[in-house]
Design a protein around this nucleic acid. Structure first.
Lengths: 111, 111
DNA sequence: TACTATGCTCACTAAATTGGGAGTTACTCA
DNA sequence: TGAGTAACTCCCAATTTAGTGAGCATAGTA
């Protein structure tokens, strides 16, 4: 976990106070997060499906990033009872509203 | 430096091949890069000025991020002879074209 | 001669992120 | 009883990124 008064953490705080861009960047800057958001938007929205399309992501990292996205309220997590239990992830409105920006970023990356 | 065949580096490669978004994200995902781009766009475009507005950034980190942005062709570096020598950073067209996206991200972060 | 300013660079350390592999829960089918 | 599946979760080690403190080159000022 983060030590709240390391200079690293202090600088992160500073960046958040000084500019909302950095707060936003933080939410989507995990290595796989942008791709996870895009895939969930395309209905590749379960743990095992994501794992399959994301190639070499580790279980732990996928779990962590999903949890972070959930905490950031970009996705929701719905447990579907059954055997075995399934879990559906869906984009929230906030998550959906990020898609055009990711598209713009992709477009920008290509040109 | 990066070890080119660590699984970390391999995954990064995979992400770049599979989705341009990640390549784009990489270019702007340093802790201070978004802010540096914005400031340079606003003419806070010298090393010492950036250092002043960025608070606690270390010389080395600022130097590194500027160099990375230069390598990514988002900024240019111009040495202005004089005493002492000054260096001006400017956004390239590519860099400028990122500003609307950062604005959108900021807007998204606020709402 | 000492000191200042700009814009770095280097070796080293600390912190944050990611990955590997095994273990867990809960229920079903053979 | 044993195997299988989905979706995690834990410990630990590897990797990547950021920060610290010092030093350097140049030229001008006190």
């Amino acid at each position: 976990m983060r030590k709240e008064n390391s200079s690293n953490a202090i600088n992160k705080e500073f960046l958040h106070r000084s500019c909302k861009v950095n707060e936003a960047m933080d939410l989507i800057s995990g290595r796989w997060k942008a791709l996870i958001i895009i895939f969930i938007g395309e209905k590749t929205n379960r743990f095992s499906l994501l794992k399959a399309v994301l190639g070499n992501i580790s279980d732990q990292t996928l779990g962590r990033q999903l949890k972070e996205l959930e905490n950031a309220k970009l996705i929701t997590r719905t447990i579907i009872p059954g055997v075995p239990v399934r879990v559906d992830y869906e984009l929230t409105e906030k998550g959906k509203s990020l898609l055009p920006i990711l598209d713009a970023l992709e477009e920008w990356g290509i040109t």
